[in-house]
């Protein structure tokens, strides 16, 4: 037996060069310390890998065949989550170069295009993915509604979803100010003015949001903090609940 080979692992058949490489790459001590079994090519191992892998265990091990059809869900919920992950990665990279002060914010963003290798690409991806996430979240909500997937026992998960929709909009809205250009400043001015029209509490809420009477340095640091840590944390918690409850409620909705 090869070094590190374990019972039950299927061996490649031919002894050719490719087989040898396969052997060296996948059947060595280090690889097998990470992935305890080989490629899961039996139903039992396939279920085990889904159930025991930290990333895959969000899934059940089996799924009804209608839910695998792309036209049932269009992957919209999964894509929203995927875009959230993509936004986290590109967002962290953008944070390396961005200082949320009125003096530096605009020049830092402008410098991404000239001074930072792939800086413009990162910023573009962050922006387009953000718009994409708003769209996929809205479409996901429509999909869930028209497939009647909010019905018992999934009532509360729909509510969690509505909260996640609001959080998505807030994440996008807070990020909108950060480039500190005319587009950002006035979009946020218009947006916060809308909040300010609320009866009785409007003025106070806007004052807290902006940290003053107009969109200025205080607003920038508040929006930045909410955008990079406050709202993502809250969203992550609600996402965890959202995904957990999908499993608890018996997976995706299906006809009775």
């Amino acid at each position: 037996m090869a070094v590190g080979d374990r019972p039950g692992t299927e061996r490649p058949k031919g002894p050719g060069l490719l087989g040898l490489i396969y052997e060296k790459v996948f059947h060595n001590y280090v690889w097998q310390s990470i992935f305890r079994s080989g490629y899961p090519n039996t139903p039992r191992n396939q279920m085990l890998v889904v159930a025991t892998n930290v990333f895959l265990h969000l899934h059940p091990t089996r799924i009804h065949k209608t839910h695998v059809k792309i036209t049932h869900t269009y992957c919209l919920g999964g894509l929203s989550f995927f875009l959230f992950l993509g936004l986290t990665v590109t967002g962290v990279l953008l944070m390396f170069y961005y200082v949320p002060s009125v003096e530096r914010a605009y020049t830092d963003i402008a410098a991404l295009e000239t001074n930072v290798r792939y800086g413009a690409l990162m910023r573009n991806m962050h922006r387009w993915m953000a718009h994409g996430m708003v769209i996929t979240v809205l479409l996901h909500m429509m999909r869930v509604f028209y497939t009647g997937a909010y019905k018992p026992p999934r009532e509360f998960n729909w509510v969690v979803g509505v909260i996640l929709l609001i959080l998505t909009l807030l994440l996008s809205f807070t990020g909108y100010l950060l480039p500190w250009d005319q587009l950002a400043l006035w979009a946020i001015t218009v947006g916060t003015n809308i909040v300010g029209s609320a009866p009785v509490l409007g003025d106070s809420v806007v004052f807290v949001m902006r940290g003053g009477f107009e969109v200025g340095p205080n607003a920038l640091i508040r929006f930045y903090t909410l955008h990079v840590i406050g709202l993502p944390l809250i969203a992550a918690i609600f996402m965890a609940v959202h995904f957990w409850r999908i499993r608890r409620d018996g997976g995706m909705a299906r006809p009775l």
Binding site: G86, V102, Y106, I109, A110, E113, A120, L121, R123, N124, M125, H126, R127, W128, M129, G132, P179, W180, D181, Q182, L183, A184, L185, E214, V215, G216
Partner: peptide, 18 residues
């Protein structure tokens, strides 16, 4: 998204001016 981001730039106009 990579292709789109390589082709279409996110808007950035003049510096904010109240």
């Amino acid at each position: 998204f990579t292709i789109m981001s390589a082709l279409v730039n996110a808007p950035l106009i003049n510096r904010a001016n109240a």
